[in-house]
């Protein structure tokens, strides 16, 4: 009796030891890089660099000052922060409601025996593997008034009047549109490999059944393919949601934040505030606010997605 019990106990313990050892590093990483870092960030958000004549260059405690400054910035008519929020949301919408559906459509088309499908897949993925610095530089050359090809073509087509006087990338009306255009142009192919993989795994029988029922091309896409790759789609959707708080390289490289902050995003605001003020505290404050606001948004999105795309077993 006792012997069997002993074996059972130690088997359970063996399992526990295994789990503990294996998970040790990831959990430690989490504790350091998430818990500690975020606690430190919270602490930093209450500090500021001491610039008084008696200072020795240290950070001192300033209470809610940084937060007050952010809120004042939100309400001031000259702050870039409201624009940053607007732009971040625009880019999110572009990512999740334009690029992702297009990606699904394209992946599906390529799957449907489109000629040159393999070549297309590689070419479409090019922007994701080429340095963004170079891509944005090329993009700005193409739209330059002296060097670029766009302006002469537009003039040839008789559309010369829409060329902005200040140039495409720095005109208040067109700057953000150019950022969106760039993200569109460079982003279509980014999700295609994953989506192609997911589509491939849909059993052929299900699709044939649909075709026999006479669903047609788009019907098949809508009723069969999308629900069955639902888990992939929702994960990609979640990845896309993080864009709100993290995208900054595209606007920074293309327009430097745009004329008077037209193309700012939340993350760009953080990065620039660190660079401009030379101190880390404002960036930390904005980061904390983002985390506070972002987490519930993400949690709600996750719930919604689970309702829309339940997991199917096949």
């Amino acid at each position: 009796m006792k012997k069997i019990q002993a074996i059972t106990l130690s088997a359970k313990w063996k399992e526990r030891i295994f789990l503990l050892t294996m998970m040790a590093i990831p959990v430690a990483h989490f504790l350091v890089f998430f818990v500690y870092i975020n606690l430190d960030t919270v602490a930093l958000s209450f500090q500021s660099l001491d610039r008084s004549p008696s200072s020795s260059g240290e950070y001192i405690f300033v209470g809610w000052q940084n937060y007050r400054e952010i809120f004042r910035g939100l309400t001031s008519p000259y702050s870039v922060f409201t624009k940053a929020i607007r732009n971040s949301l625009l880019l999110f919408a572009l990512n999740n409601f334009v690029l992702l559906p297009l990606g699904i459509l394209f992946a599906y088309l390529l799957h449907r025996k489109m000629p040159l499908a393999g070549a297309f897949r590689v070419i479409f993925y090019l922007p994701s593997i080429v340095s963004i610095v170079v891509l944005t530089m090329l993009f700005s050359f193409v739209f330059d008034s002296t060097n670029g090809i766009i302006n002469p073509v537009l003039e040839r087509l008789g559309l010369g009047h829409i060329i902005p006087e200040d140039g495409w990338l720095r005109s208040r009306d067109t700057a953000m549109k150019m950022v969106l255009l760039y993200c569109f142009w460079a982003g279509i192919g980014g999700n295609i490999p994953l989506l192609s993989g997911a589509i491939q795994r849909i059993p052929e029988e299900l699709r044939e059944a649909g075709r026999l029922d006479g669903v047609g091309f788009f019907g098949e896409l809508w009723h069969i393919v999308i629900p069955l790759i639902g888990t992939t789609v929702s994960t990609l959707y979640m990845f896309g949601t993080t864009v709100i708080f993290t995208i900054f390289l595209q606007p920074k490289l293309l327009t430097g934040g745009g004329p008077d902050g037209e193309t700012y995003t939340i993350a760009l605001y953080i990065v620039e505030s660190i660079r401009e003020s030379g101190e880390l505290t404002m960036g930390a404050t904005v980061g904390i606010l983002c985390a506070l606001i972002g987490t519930p948004i993400v949690a709600i999105t996750k719930r919604l997605l689970e309702k829309i795309f339940p997991t199917y077993e096949y």
Binding site: P164, E165, D166, G167
Partner: peptide, 24 residues
């Protein structure tokens, strides 16, 4: 005609100097 070359606001160093060198 404007006194300023169209698109100047979007030009970086090099592009502005290119326009200048090309006599635009």
């Amino acid at each position: 005609y404007s006194y300023t070359l169209s698109g100047s606001a979007s030009k970086n160093h090099l592009q502005a100097q290119q326009s200048f060198i090309r006599g635009e």
